[in-house]
Design a protein around this nucleic acid. Structure first.
Lengths: 229, 229
DNA sequence: ATATTATTGACCGGATCGGTTAGTAGAGTT
DNA sequence: AACTCTACTAACCGATCCGGTCAATAATAT
């Protein structure tokens, strides 16, 4: 038990474990996973929606249904909690990527589907993970700016989506008068649209997934040359 | 001069002018329009990004490059400023609609273009107007909730976009295997994507408009039956 | 120089902030 | 039944920030 906990802690990026005391994290990680997730998801949602400065620890505690003191008990400071989340989410995405990304898939839309599945299975772990990471990328508060940069640099996860979906894909199946880059832009914008509406509305990931599939199919049917259908 | 000011004030919805003293508004409206817009745009951006409660009057003053005291001098209270903005933006959109909407245009994509032009010319007046109104729609703070409802009810502007773009449009030109509703959903989501990215990045409205036109053309070329191209 | 207006820095009491602490509630253990 | 031990919180701390005020200054007109 202690073994598995310390193994998890090993993943922590240097700039995080400087701030987050191991003893606190051990307490948190020995909580039932369900309760851990309640707290993490509440924090991701709050930070993702309102940014670092405008999110108070009371907000997070209320959203998680626990007392403010307990949040401090598990994470020590607001900053440590925030950086822990950045680190955690980055690692989740990277693991998901290592696990599922397959660069032998060259079909444009198959690759898009691959990317979408990676994102969706990450969101099944933590629904607000993408909108949180998106907000992290634009975070500008001096208290956390440098640390964020350190963590993200460590994980080299810049512009994942476009790399994954585009590099090494076969665009020869498109009709001649269609610019694949334009289609890519549309798809990126579509997922941004989802990401944006997501936190506000009650979200059904599976329904969303089906809807996205419909769009992909519509595009494929009409943008590919007929012989490739 | 006083005449034109009081004429503008007449537009104010009842629940707003109960709160915003006319003398203050007169002061504000007699400011150079350029300066008025600086303040309004700063406020729209702040409120639109962080919501009513999490936006402080200091934030707005800083964004507008004036002192906090001056904001209170022009609007009296934070609440009055907020409701004034809701009212103002609602009227701007409604006027734009009255002026430019043409329900004799029945072609699906022509109608989309019409709607896009309406939104864009509103954004040329106040770049953050749409993301602000979007946030207003989801605002849940008790201090302003009821007043928002009163103002919006008065202007019956619910779900403008879908009504405008869809009601009475001719969908017979689509290829038989294409669901126009699906296309509509995609377009709505696309504009949401733009709306979402907009406040963060420096925005060039004309470039954006061109890009959107490309998407529309791509869709039209590939989703309409050939005889209609 | 004076009167008037536009604008602000400094300030108010109260709320909220990040963070601490003393102590309660409850599940074993004996 | 008394005693741990752990999980958790209400109440509190000083500091900061809030919405809002006001006396005083800067700018402009006369």
């Amino acid at each position: 038990m202690t073994g598995s906990v310390s193994r998890v802690i090993l993943f922590l990026t240097e700039s995080v474990n400087t701030i987050l005391e191991v003893s606190r994290l051990e307490n948190f990680l020995s909580l039932p996973v369900e309760k851990q997730n309640t707290i993490i998801d509440a924090a991701l949602l709050c930070f993702g929606t309102n940014g670092y400065k405008k999110t108070s620890v009371s907000d997070i505690a209320a959203a998680a249904g626990i007392s403010k003191a307990l949040v401090f008990h598990y994470f020590g400071t607001k900053k440590a909690l925030y950086l822990y989340l950045v680190d955690l989410c980055t690692h989740i995405i990277m693991n998901e990527l290592d696990e599922k990304f397959d660069n032998t898939v060259t079909d444009f839309f198959a690759r898009i589907n691959l990317a979408a599945n990676i994102e969706i299975s990450a969101m099944k772990k933590h629904p607000a993970i993408l909108s949180f990471l998106d907000s992290v990328y634009f975070e500008n508060d001096d208290e956390v700016k440098a640390n964020i940069k350190a963590i993200l640099a460590n994980s080299e996860s810049e512009s994942l989506r476009s790399k994954i979906a585009f590099e090494g894909t076969d665009t020869s199946k498109f009709k001649d008068d269609i610019d694949p880059k334009l289609v890519m832009k549309i798809l990126t914008l579509l997922t941004d649209g989802y990401l944006c509406k997501m936190p506000k509305t009650g979200l059904d990931l599976d329904a969303l997934c089906e809807e996205f599939d419909e769009y992909i199919n519509l595009f494929k049917r009409n943008f590919y040359k007929e012989k490739y259908l």
